[in-house]
């Protein structure tokens, strides 16, 4: 039985992932901005699956708090899953730097900051698994995902680099690039059913990815090929497309 730390535990994907790991009898540490919201989830996991659970306050964009947050954990995790993320319409962000900055701070800077701290500890111990939920939106820059996509691109690259740094030290890094997922983040969007995963599918894919020590997973296999095609479009053409 290992100890799983979930960062951004109020998200729909996090709830599903926590339930999957708890169902496999792992203890769960839930971290997020809002403790009140995490408390029902804590008892839920405990009652349904009989595992130990605890909640911790964590704010991804409060970088200074990251070190004390991690050193304050009573028990260090064996697996950390970084789920938090932030997305607003790019039209809004284009005229409002605060929103754009928030997307960069949460999706990239905050994630890099906390995962670097945790990776250091894992490297010292010589084991541990780091899971980062990035996005296919980071595979190629486009107007409809300008700030969100580039922040996720930074995060994906960070995860690749971290994997390279930690591989020889017994620490594994898994990048998760879900295509569309039905969650709060996308509740107002009209998503194509066939390309859209349920949070439970993401949770299961993450669990399997950790078990099999995968490097990158896409949840729905089509996404890997879709992104290959999108990446192969020549830039002179791509820049004129309305994507």
């Amino acid at each position: 039985m290992s100890n799983i730390l979930i960062l951004g535990a109020t998200s729909d994907i996090a709830v599903a992932t926590a339930r999957k790991f708890a169902a496999e009898k792992h203890d769960i540490q839930l971290a997020g901005r809002n403790i009140e919201n995490l408390l029902p989830l804590k008892t839920d996991l405990n009652v349904r699956f009989g595992v130990n659970t605890d909640v911790f306050k964590f704010d991804a964009s409060d970088f200074k708090s990251h070190k004390p947050f991690y050193s304050g954990l009573p028990k260090k995790p064996d697996v950390v899953i970084c789920v938090f993320g932030y997305m607003v319409e790019e039209e809004i962000a284009g005229d409002n730097w605060e929103e754009a900055e928030k997307m960069i701070n949460v999706n990239f800077t905050g994630a890099a900051s906390i995962l670097n701290i945790i990776a250091k500890d894992f490297e010292e111990k010589g084991n541990g698994v780091i899971v980062g939920i990035s996005s296919v939106a980071g595979e190629r820059g486009r107007q409809s995902k300008l700030f969100y996509g580039s922040a996720k691109a930074g995060f994906s690259t960070f995860l690749d680099g971290l994997r390279n740094r930690t591989a020889s030290k017994g620490v594994h890094v898994l990048s998760v690039k879900p295509g569309f997922v039905y969650t709060k983040m996308t509740s107002e969007l009209d998503l194509p059913g066939i390309l859209t995963a349920k949070p439970e599918q993401v949770g299961k894919a993450i669990y399997n990815g950790v078990q099999k020590r995968k490097n990158t997973i896409y949840v729905k296999w089509m996404w890997k090929w879709i992104m290959l095609i999108i990446k192969s479009i020549p830039e002179p053409l791509f820049k004129k497309m309305n994507l």
Partner: peptide, 13 residues
């Protein structure tokens, strides 16, 4: 069969 807005909520707040 109808077409409507469906709102979800996860937390008491």
């Amino acid at each position: 069969v109808i077409h409507v807005e469906e709102k979800q909520f996860s937390f008491q707040n």
